[in-house]
Write a protein that binds this DNA or RNA. Structure first.
Lengths: 318, 318
DNA sequence: TTGTAAGCGTTATCAT
DNA sequence: ATGATAACGCTTACAA
C-alpha cells in the first residue's frame, strides 16, 4: 500500500480491490509505534480568542496538512506552567514537532524536548538572542520604527497603552521598542502617560481615560495591540477629541475594523498567515534535515492611516 | 503505573523511583495500539477566522483536556469534500470522537464513522430533524424571534443582508427564520431588499448600499452575522442615516465591537463557550456510555441595544 | 518480485 | 498480590 509503484500492476490491482472490499484502512497508532513517528505536530497557544492566533493556526494547519501532518492544539492561558503541562501531554501523544508562541518558556521544556528529540519553533517573535529557531516579527524593532515615525512627525509627548506583559515577551518587546526610540531622543514617558491593563476594546477606552486625567496631555498615544487602539480611538470620539489633529493614535496588528471605522487607524501589519505557514515550513525542514531550523523574520509593515499625523501647536483642552 | 493504588506502597515507591531515574514516559502510540483508543478527539471547522469558532474551540479543548483528551484540529474551508477528506485523515489518526460544524455533511461521513464506531457531535446548530446529536442554538428559531421583535415594534419593510449559504446550513436556517416570521404576517422581502454576499465588515457596507439603491427603503435591516451588522451600521453612519430612527439594524452573534461603537448594535448572543464545552460533554458521554448522545440546545439571547427601535412615520430620504 | 518474521511499547489475560 | 505472555497492526530487514 505504501509503495504501489514497486509492485506489478496485476498484484497492485488485486491487493487494492481486496483492501477496499474488506474496508481496510491504515492504523495510525500501529504505524506510529512501528516508525516512532506520529505524523502529528503539537501547538500551544496562549489563547485562541485574541490576536492573530486563529489566522496563524489556520495557515499552520493548512501547510502541515499539505505535507501529511495533523495539528494538535493546546492552550496555555498565558501561563508557563500550563504551557509545560500541555507540552508534556503533547509529547506523550508522540508529536513529531512543537510550535510555541514567544521565546520565553518554562525551563523544563527545552530539556524535555531534547530528550524526546522533538524540534521546537518559537513563533510571533524574532529574537535570536532568546531563541535559535523563531518565526515572526521583531516586536521591539517594529515599535522602535513606529515610535520614530511619530517622533519624526514632531510629537514630543507620548502616551503608551499596554496590555499586560505577564508571561508575554512579545508585549514586553513592544514596550522596549518604544522606550528605546524615545530614549534616543531624550524623551521619557511620564508615569501618568503610561497605562497597563488587559486586553480588549473596552480596556482601551479606560486606559485612554487614565492617561487623560490631567494636563499636559500626550499628543500621540501608542497602543501595544489593535483592540486597545480601537478602544482608544472610540473613546476619543466620545470625548470629542479630534483624531489625529488633537491626538494621534497608533496600534499593532491589523483587525478588519481598524480600516473600516470613520477614522481609520494607523497600525503595523504582521501577517498571521505568514507566521503560520513559515512555522510549518521551518518545522518540516527540521524534521527532514534533523538540524536546527533557520529562523524566519516576518515583515512588519507600517500602515499609515487617518489616525496619525503631526501634532497641533495649540494644546488640547478638556 | 496505571493503577498505583492496587499495589503495595513499597513496590509503588520502588517502581516510581526507577521509572523517573530511567526517564520513562508512557508511549501514546503503543497505548493506542493496545487499547484501540487514542485519547484524541478530532474537530473540523469551516474556518478559524470568523465567527465564534475560536471561542468554541478553546472551550472544547479545555473541557477535553480536563478529561484526558487532546484535540486535533482541521479546517474544511466551507467545502464538503474537504470536510470528508479531513474526517478521513482524522479517523486514520485514530480519533475516538468527532466534532463537526452544522448538520449537513458529505454523505460518506456517516458511513465512515459507523464503520470506525466513532461518535459524532454536530455543533453550532440545533436541528433534530437533520441530526440526532447536535449542540448549538436553533438558528431558525433565533431569527424567527429576532424578526418578530422587529415586527412587533411596527416595522413592515425589511431588508436582509445575508452571508453566503453555500454549504452553510446555519446561515440558511437564519434566512428561513426571517422568512417564516414575515410570512406569518404576510410580509415578503422584495428582491431589491435582499443582498447576499461574503463575510466581513467591508461586505456589510456594500450589501447595505445594495438594499438602498432606490426607494422605498426598508426600515429594518436584518444581518445574518455580526460583521455584516457592524458594516451596515458604519455605512449608515457614513450616509448620515440615523440609527435607529431612520433605520434599525440587527445582527447575530456577539463580537466586542458591537457593544463599543457609539451606537451599540442589537444582536443575538449564543455563547461559543457553551457550544464548545457542551460539545465536549456530550461527546464524552457518548464515549462512556456507547449510546447516541443527548442533544443540547444552547440559548440564544436577544440583546436589545441602541441600533433597533420603532420605525419613524416619515420616510427616509436619500 | 514476493514472502516471512521480528519488533515497536503498551494492555489484557492468564498462571502463579 | 505479582509475574509471564500473547495480542494490537504496522514497518523493516532479510530470505526465497
Amino acid at each position: 500500500m505504501n509503495f504501489p509503484e514497486q509492485v506489478s500492476a496485476e498484484l497492485r490491482e488485486r491487493v487494492q480491490s481486496v483492501a477496499t472490499k474488506l474496508g481496510w484502512v491504515p492504523n495510525g497508532a500501529a504505524r506510529a509505534l512501528a516508525t516512532s513517528r506520529s505524523g502529528t505536530i503539537g501547538a500551544v497557544f496562549p489563547t485562541l480568542i485574541f490576536g492573530d492566533f486563529p489566522r496563524a493556526i489556520q495557515a499552520l494547519q493548512h501547510e502541515l496538512a499539505r505535507n501529511g501532518y495533523t495539528l494538535l492544539i493546546a492552550v496555555s492561558e498565558y501561563d508557563l506552567d500550563q504551557e509545560l503541562e500541555q507540552v508534556r501531554k503533547l509529547l506523550e501523544r508522540g508529536v513529531d514537532g512543537l510550535v510555541l508562541v514567544g521565546t520565553i518558556h518554562h525551563k523544563d521544556i527545552d530539556e524535555l524536548c531534547k530528550r524526546y528529540k522533538v524540534p521546537i519553533v518559537n513563533t510571533f517573535a524574532y529574537d535570536l538572542a532568546r531563541a535559535k529557531t523563531c518565526v515572526g516579527a521583531d516586536n521591539k524593532k517594529a515599535f522602535y520604527r513606529l515610535t520614530n515615525y511619530l517622533a519624526d512627525l514632531g510629537h514630543q509627548s507620548f502616551g503608551l497603552l499596554a496590555q499586560t506583559t505577564l508571561n508575554n515577551d512579545r508585549a514586553q518587546g513592544r514596550i522596549d521598542g518604544v522606550k528605546l526610540a524615545l530614549a534616543e531622543r531624550s524623551i521619557a514617558i511620564p508615569p501618568q502617560h503610561y497605562a497597563e491593563g488587559r486586553w480588549g476594546i473596552h480596556e482601551g477606552k479606560s486606559l485612554l481615560r487614565r492617561v487623560l486625567q490631567q494636563p499636559p496631555y500626550p499628543t500621540a498615544v501608542i497602543c501595544t495591540n489593535a483592540y486597545l487602539a480601537v478602544g482608544a480611538l472610540l473613546e476619543c470620539q466620545r470625548l470629542e477629541i479630534r483624531v489625529p489633529e488633537q491626538m494621534s493614535i497608533v496600534g499593532y496588528d491589523e483587525i478588519e475594523i481598524m480600516a473600516e471605522l470613520p477614522i481609520t487607524i494607523t497600525t503595523v501589519r504582521v501577517s498571521g498567515e505568514e507566521v503560520g505557514q513559515n512555522s510549518a515550513r521551518v518545522l518540516l525542514a527540521m524534521l527532514r534535515e534533523e538540524q536546527s531550523g533557520q529562523p524566519h523574520e516576518c515583515s512588519a509593515e507600517l500602515l499609515i492611516r487617518d489616525s496619525s499625523g503631526p501634532p497641533r501647536r495649540d494644546p488640547l483642552l478638556l
